[in-house]
Design a protein around this nucleic acid. Sequence first.
DNA 1: TATGAATGAGTCTTCATTCAT
DNA 2: CATGAATGAAGACTCATTCAT
Lengths: 181, 181, 181, 181
Amino acid sequence: METTLGAIAREAGVTPAMVHYYFKTRDQLLDVLIDERFVPLRAELGRAFADSDAEPADALRAFAEGLVAVAERHPWFATLWVREVISEGGLLRQRIAERFGDANKKASIARIAQWQKEGKLNPHLEPSLLFVSLFGLTLLPLAVTYTWAEESGGRAPRRDQIARHAVALLMHGVGPLVGPF
Amino acid sequence: METTLGAIAREAGVTPAMVHYYFKTRDQLLDVLIDERFVPLRAELGRAFADSDAEPADALRAFAEGLVAVAERHPWFATLWVREVISEGGLLRQRIAERFGDANKKASIARIAQWQKEGKLNPHLEPSLLFVSLFGLTLLPLAVTYTWAEESGGRAPRRDQIARHAVALLMHGVGPLVGPF
Amino acid sequence: METTLGAIAREAGVTPAMVHYYFKTRDQLLDVLIDERFVPLRAELGRAFADSDAEPADALRAFAEGLVAVAERHPWFATLWVREVISEGGLLRQRIAERFGDANKKASIARIAQWQKEGKLNPHLEPSLLFVSLFGLTLLPLAVTYTWAEESGGRAPRRDQIARHAVALLMHGVGPLVGPF
Amino acid sequence: METTLGAIAREAGVTPAMVHYYFKTRDQLLDVLIDERFVPLRAELGRAFADSDAEPADALRAFAEGLVAVAERHPWFATLWVREVISEGGLLRQRIAERFGDANKKASIARIAQWQKEGKLNPHLEPSLLFVSLFGLTLLPLAVTYTWAEESGGRAPRRDQIARHAVALLMHGVGPLVGPF
DNA sequence: TATGAATGAGTCTTCATTCAT
DNA sequence: CATGAATGAAGACTCATTCAT
């Protein structure tokens, strides 16, 4: 279901023409949307991660929890992220990619690799994939289960369940708990 | 970018009218697509998981590896899954949901819960989310990195890296390896 | 020649998209057309006939004259009636039938039959066909001769000729005038 | 409901391509249709009328009865005539008009006018409209009532009723029978 | 002779965009 | 600021027509 300008306008309680009055074109509307909505969230997450003095594993856990927290405050976030940001051809994909250049990404990847070298992270992980995994364990389930409620009768997992599940998986994997835990 | 019939036709090297000649309507095209492409893959994965006599953790690992293997044989699988199957409003979402009813899903969830009770799986996991997590650790990275190559110059992770990464995360989490591993 | 939306638009001097701007769908356009154009005329004719205190034959004559008068005021009426209302598969046929239910029709038929019993109408007439005959003697000639002018050079019968002809036939049949007329 | 080539083909039990094999184009199909179906019927009717030695009124009655008889033998005749022959823009209208030129028509009109002068026909009739009236009293009711059966439950007038009704109207008009009948 | 495959042109419809008010 | 009116471009779908077999 393509989100039409008319739908956006109706939801905002204005006329389609009004949307154009403010955002000369559909593209500019998207740019503004990104700047005003995505960028702050992204910045917030980035800061949380970068500033962390905690053990690497805890920093990642904090990042995952941060993602869920953000999605909790902004119900549209998870869904929009799946549909428009990561999906091939998503409306925001290219724009987001352009805005958050490679630099940031490379730095993060380098940091993870460094942590692995220091024996602070599972060495079999692929640094360039770790963040995607974190999104896949948090926003993806949030987006997928978002409409489960309507579709199959109200039994969608709660947000905190999703966070706990993701953290459990991140911390120990699927296997039974072993050792001195 | 909505996948138009024209786009499908162009990609297949035929005219839009041709598509209608074979699939009387857009809906039928999608139904055929699902029946001929998705159903067999899904069945294959389901069988692999259901038949497994292995330890639960290994069964899940096998499932994840199966997902990556399927995506390796069918390059369109991961992308299509993200864009059209799990995304809210995806073209195939409702159709897929209808075809693979709740029964299957409930059985899998029950099985996982049972395994947890038997101490064979991490008890902090949420059974209803485990499969979503497996998809989020395999198909999602596959889809996301699919176009990385074009976009930023050929450094997309290889498929086997993705499988290894997912398995590493599933088996031990992000933390450093401890104990007698 | 099917009446396309494009044709209607062209004739109205607007674009096809304009037609949709006003009438969300082709169906609604037709409904509006019927409500605004046909219903009032039909009501006018119905009233004229129902109210008449005159002799039955004169009431029928008045109805026929009313039909011609209406067609005189609305040049599109006769043509549209033949093409879209009575023709099998006509665009308006089903809609019109739905709007003017059977009740009205049955009442009229009963009235005619009653008149016949009272000796006020030709008893060999078939009550259910009398109205069709009235249309066939007025609107049909009007529609048929409408384009005679263009096609064969201006010798189309005038409207009053058609009315006179229909009335002459209704009052006396085709035969020569006999008796004390 | 535009009659498509495909529909014609299906009804004839052949493929659409086959129709083109025989009738190089849609137009030619229509020409053949006219030549093989309409022309003979028209000729038959024309002959019946022209040859008649009867009183004029009886000749007209015979013509009307002939029309009904033809429609009885060829169920498609009345419907097609209304939809495609007399309706403005009907597929066959122009073609039929071209085939049966003015000459014939003018001769008939002259003949009727002559009869009127001789006191053998109602002088108030309009010669050029008399044939249209005959069609309007026979084929039109036949076409209109053709689908009444399906639509409102089987109470369509029978063909002989229609013929009797038309003749009754033609012979005496709508008024009560008077004088020595 | 016959047809399945293929297509260009046209129909209805939607939507982003423009513009006069 | 705001909007109703209007439209060009594009999408799904239909159909007469062509063509290789």
